[in-house]
Design a protein around this nucleic acid. Sequence first.
DNA 1: TCTATTCGTAACTATTATTATTACATGAAA
DNA 2: TTTCATGTAATAATAATAGTTACGAATAGA
Lengths: 150, 150
Amino acid sequence: MKRNSRLSAVLHALLHMAERNAPMTSDELATCLQTNPVVVRRTMAGLREAGLVISGRGHGGGWTLGRPLEDVTMRDIYTALGEPMLFQMGNVTESPGCLVEQAVNHALDDAFRDAEAMLIARLGEVTLATLADDFKRRFAEHRAALKQPG
Amino acid sequence: MKRNSRLSAVLHALLHMAERNAPMTSDELATCLQTNPVVVRRTMAGLREAGLVISGRGHGGGWTLGRPLEDVTMRDIYTALGEPMLFQMGNVTESPGCLVEQAVNHALDDAFRDAEAMLIARLGEVTLATLADDFKRRFAEHRAALKQPG
DNA sequence: TCTATTCGTAACTATTATTATTACATGAAA
DNA sequence: TTTCATGTAATAATAATAGTTACGAATAGA
């Protein structure tokens, strides 16, 4: 059931970075995300190009956020990742000669395009700050639950 | 770029069946869809269980539509296919212990769930008859273009 | 300068999901 | 009873993704 998880993985990484003042190394992030440091570098490369994160080499190097949490939406991240296909099901042929297939593709494209537009708009409404606040709320609840069990 | 194409393939197949009065064999459908007859049988099995198509064995056997075109929506087919995942990107962990990951998953789940609901609703609005009409329109246009070139 | 560290990236391997194929059993019609 | 066609399990091939190894380049500190 585990599919392309880059978007959620990246969000996860960025929030962990936000919790810190110092740069996080690819190794640390890889441990957080339960993956490989090279995969981290590969994924973060797109974000670096978009200015969302900054990387530094050598001693004290690693990954830092490049913009305030309020200024980065999930859509920005989606874009920086190269706008990967959101849908599992695509059309088979790009320019089908079969008119039956054209009719099918047209109907599906319409529906999928609208849903995708809606999804992307939603991604644009949520900033990293929103997510960080949600995390803090969960953290507070978690601590309260520990203090007052039962 | 070619992903799970079952929905479009099945629609394609059903419309070809609608154009005929006799049953179509798995081999014929496989040729239409540029795939393998066993894949056709496997895919159509779900539709048969849902009563959307009827299969017959032996001489004169093959696949026939089980309901009028007006009574079958794209959503019915989606359901008969076992409601496959529509989205490429899922969350990594189902019940993550990490609170950061919980916050991320929650936000993504919200957005994806809404988009999925919208898409499924749209699929429910389009019947096979709609698609067949669209095909006929395209066919008429195609013939007109052939008669009057330039 | 030398060394330890850390990213950057190419090349390769492993894993997983999907699709295709083979093989054979079952059922129906001529 | 022969021929045709589906039903389905088992297996192979393919493709997408993720993981690994290896090494170069840059940076900071001794």
